[in-house]
Computed example of a mutant assay.
Amino acid sequence: MGRPLPYGAAGVERQPEGVVRTPDASLAEAQQLLDAGMPFHAHEVFEDAWKSAAGPERALWKGLAQLAVGVTHAARGNRRGAVSLLRRAAEVIAAAEGNPPYGIDVAGLARWARGFADELAAAPEGGPAPAASPRLRG
């Protein structure tokens, strides 16, 4: 999940950073990582897109990165952090509703992030976090 491991411990390799991808490649790779239960790695893909984007798209990529980090926090058991990031991501993503690029389901993602945040906020402490894999495109 992207958490630090002790030196020498077996784990999943980090996602390479600073990779410039097309928006379609970023979305496809991030969706694959989300579906595989690797939201932190999806965050890295979104972060690369965010850092290389310009204009209004930059904020959308940042919101998608926040969404993936929110899912990461939920998977790690940090519900408070997850709820906060998911709600922030929903607001940032929803701002792109007027002109969603690349077939991104902006309205659906904002709704999903709010719903997942509400589900986490209402869940009993100490219980397992629900599985989460948002659909990036409609």
Results as ranks from 00 to 15, higher is better:
L5E: 12
R21I: 12
P16M: 11
S133V: 01
A30P: 07
L120K: 04
A75F: 02
G126I: 14
A28E: 04
P100V: 05
V45L: 01
G103Y: 05
A36H: 05
A107Y: 10
F46K: 00
A68N: 08
L120P: 05
G115F: 04
G63V: 06
L34D: 01
R21W: 08
P56C: 05
K51M: 12
A129V: 05
A110C: 06
A131S: 10
E91K: 15
A49S: 13
V45A: 00
R76D: 09
P23H: 12
S26V: 08
G81Q: 11
G103C: 05
L109F: 10
I93N: 04
A10E: 15
A42C: 04
H41S: 06
S84P: 06
P23E: 11
R88T: 14
A110Y: 08
R3M: 12
L64I: 07
R88E: 14
M1Y: 09
P130W: 07
L85E: 05
P134I: 01
R21L: 15
V83W: 07
D24K: 14
P23V: 12
E125V: 07
P16W: 09
L34Q: 02
W50P: 09
V12P: 10
D48W: 05
P39W: 03
P23Y: 13
L34R: 02
F46W: 02
A132N: 05
V69C: 07
V45M: 04
A59W: 00
A122E: 12
L67G: 03
G103D: 10
V45Y: 01
H41K: 09
W112P: 06
T22G: 14
G115C: 02
A74C: 06
Y7W: 00
L85I: 00
D48P: 04
E91F: 09
R87L: 01
R3Q: 08
I93T: 07
G55F: 03
E29Q: 07
L136E: 00
A121C: 08
A25L: 11
V69P: 02
F46A: 03
D35G: 02
K51R: 14
R3P: 02
A129H: 12
P23S: 11
R79G: 13
N99D: 15
E29V: 01
E91D: 15
E44P: 00
V20P: 09
A54H: 13
A122I: 06
P16S: 08
F40K: 02
L60A: 10
A90Y: 05
L136A: 01
E44H: 04
D35M: 01
V106D: 05
P101W: 11
A36N: 02
P101Y: 10
E29I: 04
